[in-house]
């Protein structure tokens, strides 16, 4: 049994790798989905960032994608176990349809994250560690420095395509 802070610090990179992988796999950095996402990307590029990373950050802002799916699925596992996570995935799909989005990335992220978080609870982690870990993971992308984060995401996108 690890101490509490160490468990949160291990859970954060797991969530980071999970949602970045799913978002880049579903081609979120390719273009802005709605006109607001495109405007955010242009504004980040004017401030010294990269354009494709800006598209991905704008898409995260303007519709619930795999990051929201990971957060809400770990919330569901905290409250009600496996059925809670799948119920959260259904609600994320409905929310994606409200925001004019096809909703593949959010639903896939929620379903995958449900089983990943449940697997980690079998080896001594608490599910609430993943909620805090996901908040730390989204902080490193959207909250610290826009230009550095968008350059990192653009590098990952060039790697995939």
């Amino acid at each position: 049994m690890l101490p509490d802070f160490l468990r949160i610090l291990i859970a954060a990179p797991v969530c980071w790798i999970l949602y970045i992988t799913i978002d880049v796999y579903f081609k979120l950095p390719e273009q802005g989905g709605v006109s607001g996402a495109t405007a955010i990307a242009k504004d980040i590029e004017r401030g010294g960032g990269a354009l494709h990373g800006g598209y991905m950050m704008g898409n995260i802002v303007s519709s619930p994608d795999a990051s929201a799916g990971t957060l809400l699925a770990s919330c569901g596992v905290t409250a009600a176990g496996i059925p809670g996570g799948l119920f959260a995935a259904l609600l994320v799909y409905i929310g994606n349809r409200i925001c004019y989005d096809p909703g593949y990335a959010g639903t896939t992220g929620a379903v995958v994250a449900t089983f990943v978080v449940f697997g980690f609870t079998q080896i001594g982690f608490a599910a609430s560690d993943f909620v805090a870990g996901m908040v730390i993971a989204i902080l490193t992308i959207q909250g610290l420095s826009h230009s550095h984060a968008s350059r990192l995401l653009a590098t990952l996108w060039r790697w995939r395509s």
């Binding site: 607001g36 802002v61 609600l91 994320v92 929310g95």
Partner: peptide, 21 residues
Amino acid sequence: SIVVAVAYFVGSTLESNAIAS
């Protein structure tokens, strides 16, 4: 509480989307 958390998150995202657009 899952319903409340999802409702708050989707509502906030919709609001950001409308403001940016």
